[in-house]
Every structure is written in structure tokens, then in C-alpha cells.
Design a binder for these strands. Structure first.
Lengths: 351, 351
DNA sequence: CTGTTAGCGCCTTCAG
DNA sequence: CTGAAGGCGCTAACAG
């Protein structure tokens, strides 16, 4: 097996307590400089590596934060993960990443598995719209931060985007371009971000004195195929909309694919004249032919922010500030950037 | 603090050893059915949760596998991660995911941090082309599997794709379409996958009796901007190529963007007539106007495969099969699928 | 089949 | 400033 603190102690001619004190400067008494040097030298020479399992057993802390996302293969989530990881890493924490497979049942399982692993805290993008299971964990003292989606049945700090404002601006941009017949191709009304986006859309129309045709507000799934279907039925209508707001990138993508398929001439050919303003963007946005505006979230920033918050909470907990205060959850909303997408996107504005 | 095995033992009127035996059926002696029931009932009633740090300290195993990728926000990598996670999870393992930020220095740091965490094994997509640091960890007995890229200076099992064959087919498809003037917009020659792809390209040309113009083989960076630049200079040549093979999706994307920018008319306008065959694909591939063929890797499959391999190795190690055998690394290559991308991709063929 | 016992490697009072 | 000693929660011999 590997070297232990005992070996280092012997090699340095000191006690294990002293070694521990130089290796874990956190809550330890001072050590004489020359002793410290002897110890570090001995550790170096022996190639000593700390056994974190043992330390964790003693300190009840693992310096590990679990992250649970609905899926991994998703640009937005991964940018968030990247932000979290960077933040955690810079503070000596490690990230445990797990997918809930878009299932709330699976989310429960993963969360309980992970909390047994003695993680110090948890960051989750909820798979569903309810969060009693999250709340109960938080009540037991698990530091927790939500990202992107806010759930019912839980009062937990969260960091998300200005979904309402972003969609408002998106819609207003279409209105400013003269479009009046605008549809909303939207998501699950149970998902907070989708709900907020719908509400931004409605506010912009209201402000312009337009009452939306109810059949143009298409709620439901938020995957590629949902956008695909919706685009089909919208365009089949007697008097179809001339512009549409897409609730997210997947739906947007599905809509564009439908347009592609509506005439057999491939990405270069002509197609129905519809303009789309979509929430979220990616490197591929400039290639989406119908896309006129897009709203981009600062996903990495959200991740960093969530990383900071979770570390703060972990440290508050260690410091003994019991977190039962419950003065309501604190929701941080990051601004969203709108850009006009005409051959590579230039003009921008923040929400 | 939480309940311990001791509490359960007392509540059930048995010893801690018995409790341990019902909770860790792995290497344990049998327990009478009614005793087992008493124990599980007591554990249930007390809300007992196992302390894994303690178990790990004892068993020297954490049921955790670390995964180190060059970056997280990358479709291909995340599909691989998804595959790994599924496989690990189904066997009771947990995944620790970390990014090396595309830096070999950072990779070294992360790897040594992680190996201190008493992980049972490690899956890595190397950031660089050399793997001495990986080899030395493997030599110390760390089960390890590489994915996607094979490195110099290490003999470690790996799972990757048929890069050579895929690019061969891609190029041959262009040739079959009558193109003769074909360029290769390629990657770092130090990265094994890029090298293999170049070699598949060369073989296809050779087979057709065409000797490639050396100035049409553009090596170097593998990011979006690299493709962008290369497309520019290729088209500026006196007698430019009429078709190109892109080494990966990022380069491909950059090439397409350059085409987009070469005429101010946006994604709908006309553009130079060049056809691209690109390695890798994504949901966005159908929107790339110049894309004629794409090769898709089974990323999730690669992940699953790597997950299986690492678990096997972990178990071999536990079973005492010391892994110094060194009968050369075993490289598993998954086939690649070529598809013709004309308005949504249909025809396919496996390598 | 079950209980007793001795640590796994580290941290942390309590003495010195 | 440093050493000795106990124990975190669990498992794995070894007895019974």
C-alpha cells in the first residue's frame, strides 16, 4: 500500500500529529518552521500521498460537490458544468457529475446515492417541476443550489437567467421589425424557465397592443421533434404566422428542420418565408436559415455563480451557521444577450 | 451525526459484524433469513445510511471512476461521458468528471489530484500526444483506459474509432462522385486520431491513382478558427480544390462559416461551389450547406465500451491478477458510419 | 450462522 | 511548539 502519515513521521523523526499539522494547516496549531521543512522534505522523498478517505472519515468532509443534470449531452448544461468545475477546482473541490436521464425518479435515486457518498454539497438542474425531495435533503442540512430551473415545493437558492426579460426583448425585436403575426413555440408549462419565457412573450405582445391568437401558442414538449411537429401544424393553418419565438434551441432546431424538409432542395434551396427568434444559441446558430434573433444565456457564468454559492454555503455550514434561517430562497438571475443573426450575428443588447 | 452500523446492531439485537454482512453481501458469509430481515427492518426504521468514507477506508475501494476529458462543452466528449456514466451506474459505480482544459499540464494536475481521492480507476481522453504520466500511474497499479486518442509513451488499453477506415470511405465517396481535386483540412499530426484520418485520406487517393497536391493538405489546429482560415487560403489558390475532407466537426464548422462569410447574403444566399465531407456529425450537420458526406462515430458506444473495460480491469485487479502482464495494449476500434447528407441524410454504410 | 476484535489512515483534544 | 492516545464507521479475519 501507499505511504502513510506514520511513515513520514518516522522518516522526519516527529510524531504523526506533527505531520498532520503541516499537511492540514486548516484548524491546526502552528509548527516550527524547521520542523515543517523536515516534514515536507520527508513526505516529498517518500512520495507520500494523502489518503482522503481517511481524512474524510475524520473530518466529515470530502471536498466534493455533486452535480446532477437532466442529461449530459447538452450544450447548455455542459457549459454550466464547465463553469461549476472551474470554480470548484480553483477552491480545491472536486466535481461529481451525474445524469438524471430527464427522469424525476432517476433524479431521486441519484441524489440519494450521492448524498450517501458524503459529498459536501450539491448543485442540481431539476429534471421535473417539483422539488420536495430536494427540500427534504436541504432540510437535513445538505448545502444545495439549483440552476436554471426553479421548482415548486422547495425553497432553495437558485441561479438562473432572465428568461422573462430575454424573451420579451426577443419578441419586441420582431415587433420592431414590423411583424405582427407572431407565434410562440413553447415548452412544458411546468418548467419554470419555459413558463417565464412564455410570459415575456405575452408581455411584449401586450405592450404592443396585440392579443395573441391562442392557437399560436403551442405548449408541450421541448425536444427537437416537438419543434418539428409544431412548425408543420402552424404553417398548415389558413393564415399562418410570419414570425415565431422558439422556447429553446432544440425546439428551434426542430422548427428549422421542418422548414428544410418542406422543400426537397436541401439547405441551399428556397423555403417558406418565416422568421424565428430563438432562446439559446450555439456555434451553429448562424447556419439556421430562418433564425433572425437569438437570446444567449451566460451558461458558464451561471455555472461559476452556482459554484461560488455552493462553496459559500458549505463554508457557512462548517462555520456553524445553521441554515434553517429560511428567509426565503435567494434567486440570482443573470442577464441574457440578444443578437441579430444576419450572416454571423453582430448587434447585441443585454436584458 | 447520522446513525451508524452500531445503532442498527443494537436496535436489531445483533452484532455490528452481522449488520455489515447483510449490508455488504460481497465477500460476506451467509446470514439467516430472519436475522437479515430484523437487520434490514431496523436499518429502515432508523433511517440508516451507510458511511462510504468509512467503508472505503477499510476496503481500499471507492466504487468511483474518474473521467478526465480535454473539455466538457463538446458534443462528442459528452456523448462518450453519457455512455460511460450509464455503464458505470448500472454496475453501482459513480463517475467523477473533470476537465483538463486542453492542457497537458492541467491534465497532470487533475490526474494526480484524482488519484489521491482513492478512485478505483480512470478513463481519460488525453489532452496531448504523450502519455508518460499516464503510464506511470498505470504502472503503480491504477486501472486505466484511454478513449479516442492513443498516445506515445504509454501502452494502455484504449477504445477509439476506425478513423482510418472512416476517412477512407469518406474520401472514396467523393471520388465516386467524380471529384478529383480534393483537399484535406486536417489536424495536429501529433494527435493519433487526426493522423489516422489523414492516412485514410491518403490511402483513398492512392487507390484512385491520384497524388495529392501537397499544398492541399493543411495540417495544424483543430478548432473552428483553423477551419475558417484554411478554407480562405484554399479558395484563394489559382486552381482551388472542388472538394474537401474536414478532420473534425469544429474544423468543418469553421470552413462552412468561411463560405457563409464569402458572400454577404446570409445562409440563404449563393456561395462558392465546394463540397465538404466531414468527420463527426451532430444534429446540426443537415444545416451545413456544403456538407455532402459525414462520418459519425458511435460516441455513446465508445463510452459504454470504455466503461465496461475499466470495470473489468478494476475487478481483475481486485481478484489479484496483477496487471504487469504488459502484453501490449489492447485497442478496440468501433466502426464509423458514413452518411450522405442531402436534405437530412439517408444512405448509410458502416466502415 | 453469529459475535469479538483489531485495525484502515488520519485528525484532535489533552498533556507535556 | 510537540507527542501520545483515542476514535471516526466499517469490514474481515478469527473464534465460537
Amino acid at each position: 500500500m501507499g505511504k502513510t502519515i506514520r511513515d513520514v513521521a518516522d522518516a522526519a523523526g516527529v510524531s504523526t500529529a506533527t505531520v498532520s499539522r503541516v499537511l492540514a494547516p486548516e484548524n491546526s496549531r502552528p509548527v516550527a518552521e524547521k520542523t515543517r521543512l523536515r516534514v515536507t522534505a520527508a513526505a516529498e522523498k517518500l512520495g507520500y500521498r494523502m489518503n482522503y478517505a481517511a481524512r474524510s472519515l475524520k473530518t466529515q468532509s470530502t471536498m466534493t460537490v455533486a452535480v446532477v443534470f437532466p442529461e449530459l449531452a447538452n450544450d447548455f448544461f455542459m457549459d454550466v458544468a464547465e463553469g461549476i468545475e472551474r470554480e470548484l477546482n480553483s477552491r480545491g473541490y472536486t466535481m461529481l457529475l451525474s445524469s438524471s436521464l430527464n427522469s424525476i425518479e432517476e433524479e431521486k435515486k441519484r441524489i440519494s446515492m450521492l448524498s450517501d457518498r458524503m459529498i459536501d454539497g450539491m448543485v442540481v438542474i431539476p429534471a421535473g417541476s417539483r422539488g420536495e425531495h430536494l427540500q427534504s435533503l436541504a432540510d437535513q442540512g445538505m448545502p444545495m443550489v439549483l440552476v436554471d430551473r426553479i421548482v415548486e415545493g422547495a425553497e432553495i437558492d437558485a441561479v438562473t437567467s432572465d428568461n422573462e426579460g430575454g424573451t420579451f426583448m426577443l419578441t419586441r425585436a420582431l415587433l420592431a421589425d414590423g411583424f405582427k403575426r407572431i407565434a410562440f413555440v413553447g415548452g412544458e408549462i411546468t418548467v419554470s424557465s419555459a413558463r417565464e419565457r412564455l410570459s415575456g412573450f405575452a408581455r411584449a405582445l401586450a405592450e404592443a397592443g396585440i392579443k395573441p391568437d391562442p392557437s399560436w401558442i403551442c405548449l408541450g414538449g421541448m425536444e427537437v421533434e416537438d419543434g418539428y411537429k409544431r412548425m408543420g401544424s402552424l404553417l398548415k393553418k389558413r393564415n399562418p404566422p410570419e414570425a415565431m419565438v422558439a422556447v429553446n434551441l432544440l425546439v428551434h432546431l426542430g422548427m428549422e428542420r421542418r422548414l428544410l424538409d418542406m422543400n426537397g432542395s436541401g439547405p441551399n434551396g428556397p423555403r417558406p418565408k418565416v422568421v424565428i427568434a430563438g432562446f439559446d444559441e450555439s456555434r451553429y446558430t448562424p447556419f439556421l436559415p430562418a433564425c433572425r434573433y437569438s437570446a444567449s444565456q451566460d451558461a458558464v457564468g451561471m455555472g461559476r455563480c452556482a459554484g461560488q454559492r455552493i462553496i459559500e454555503k458549505i463554508q457557512e455550514k462548517k462555520a456553524g451557521h445553521f441554515e434553517g434561517e429560511k428567509n426565503g430562497e435567494r434567486i440570482i438571475r443573470l442577464p441574457v444577450t440578444i443578437s441579430r443573426s444576419e450572416n454571423g450575428a453582430v448587434s447585441k443588447a443585454a436584458s
